[in-house]
Structure formats: C-alpha cells, structure tokens
C-alpha cells in the first residue's frame, strides 16, 4: 500500500474544513483543531487504512508528517 503525505494532508483538510494543510503545520496550534478533531482525524485514518491507533500514538501526532509516519508504520508499508 502506498500512502502519500498528500493524501494525509487531504484527510486532515477534509476533517477540519480547510484547503491548505502543510506537512509540518501543527494540527492544533496552526490549523485550529481541538482534541475531538484529533480523535476524529485518527478515527477516519483508522477506518480508511484499516489500522488501530493507540492513545499513546494519538497524543504523539502533532503534524500531518507525524500522522503519515504513524500510518505507514501501522499499515506495515
């Protein structure tokens, strides 16, 4: 499975209702997400990529790049 960083940025943008999501934008500080949004981003990623994100992993996600790395690791690609 090849999951691109762009794809992850789009996923975050859809969830937050914003067009521009940079790989290193801080999802909460820069993009205005709250903790529930972060949970929803994780839940959408879980469903889309058939993975399970733990509580510990969840709090480590700060940027799209972080989520991308995590998804790649969990999806085993």
């Amino acid at each position: 499975m090849s999951i691109t960083l762009d794809e992850i940025c789009t996923l975050i943008g859809l969830q937050l209702g914003i067009q521009e999501v940079g790989a290193n934008h801080h999802i909460q500080a820069n993009l205005g997400a709250d903790s529930v949004d972060l949970v929803n981003i994780a839940a959408t990623a879980e469903e889309k990529y058939q993975i399970e994100i733990s509580e510990t992993d969840l709090v480590s996600i700060k940027t799209a790049a972080d989520l991308h790395q995590l998804v790649l690791r969990l999806a085993g690609s």
Binding site: T10, G13, L14, Q15, L16, G17, I18
Partner: peptide, 21 residues
Amino acid sequence: QQTVIKMVSRFFHRFGFRPAR
C-alpha cells in the same frame, strides 16, 4: 473534496466545533 471542505467549514463557523464525518 471542495464540497466536503465547504460543508465542514460552514458547520464550524456556525457551531464552533466540527462534525465527526
């Protein structure tokens, strides 16, 4: 993609939080 972004953003401006999906 644009449609969903518009829907979420409009929701957020109205309610101050976002829909799950």
